[in-house]
Nucleic acid binder design. Structure first.
Lengths: 148, 148
DNA sequence: TATTGTTATACTCTATAACTATA
DNA sequence: TATAGTTATAGAGTATAACAATA
């Protein structure tokens, strides 16, 4: 019976299959890792999209993350409710909200990032450190805009 | 303005982010590639789960693909309706359905697989052939059961 | 009692369309 | 007219619970 359990040779080489399940597993590990810090994996993504750059409007943050601006609204509602993010009207264009991390948001981001790094190390444990870094750079070439 | 478009340095190294968007992009390319053959990308996955192995029950096929057996029901309904798959009661255990590709299913699988391979080549174009193969084997080590 | 397929249902994630306020 | 944020809504994709048939 256990000889019928695996995906089979065709599925095992299929990129959609491999990427889907790699993402599902890594997302679950990240979610479990950051949960003790009061956020979920998607919220960590939003916090990451707000750091290491100039302050962003909600729309810019959504573009950085690759999600819709309407999806961003609910995520910022939750993060603002937790005191991790602040929204202020833009000085020169009052249609926009400037979204920034609060001090608590920076602290949560710091702790959650460490937890996520540990989850990534667990996930990548079957690979050598060199193979793990090659995987990351290969994914970057496939996903990031070519001018990066 | 375009200097604020990319994901930023933190997100660019985050594995969940990279895997999510790699999967989304590859899934879209595959879906577009196989659509002319009358199936979508998820249905190609089901067809792949039924080939290269002994005939499977619905539950076994679902396990190979990594989806729930209740999800498999609707997918097989659709594929059976298109004449690509057949369901027959198992000879020795009439609780089970033996699921097999029909001749039309094998033909569709053949054509859709070629289309999918072309889509994978497009997706992997930013990498050298060696880097692409390393990516695939790295993902296999991360996703497949260790006894494979 | 346990398992396979099935159905009904609900939940998560996401996007589209329409509204408002500003520009 | 166009854009940023918001709301309401709908569509994928998925899983959980309960049921019938069979073991």
């Amino acid at each position: 019976m256990s000889s019928s359990d695996g995906p089979g040779p065709e599925l095992s080489r299929n990129l959609v299959y491999l990427l889907k399940h790699a993402h599902l597993r890594m997302a679950e590990l990240t979610g479990d890792a950051v949960a003790p810090h009061g956020i979920d994996g998607r919220e960590l993504g939003v916090l990451l999209s707000l750091t290491g750059r100039e302050p962003a409007s909600q729309q810019q943050a959504a573009q950085r993350l690759g999600i819709d601006r309407t999806t961003m609204v609910a995520m910022l509602d939750a993060l603002e409710g937790k005191g991790l993010v602040s929204r202020h009207p833009h000085a020169e264009d009052r249609r926009r909200n400037v979204v920034e991390l609060t001090d608590a948001g920076r602290e949560t981001l710091h702790l959650a990032t460490e937890a996520n790094n540990a989850a990534e190390r667990d996930f990548l444990a079957p690979l050598t450190p060199e193979a793990a870094e090659h995987l990351r750079t290969a994914l970057q070439k496939l996903v990031l805009p070519p001018d990066d």
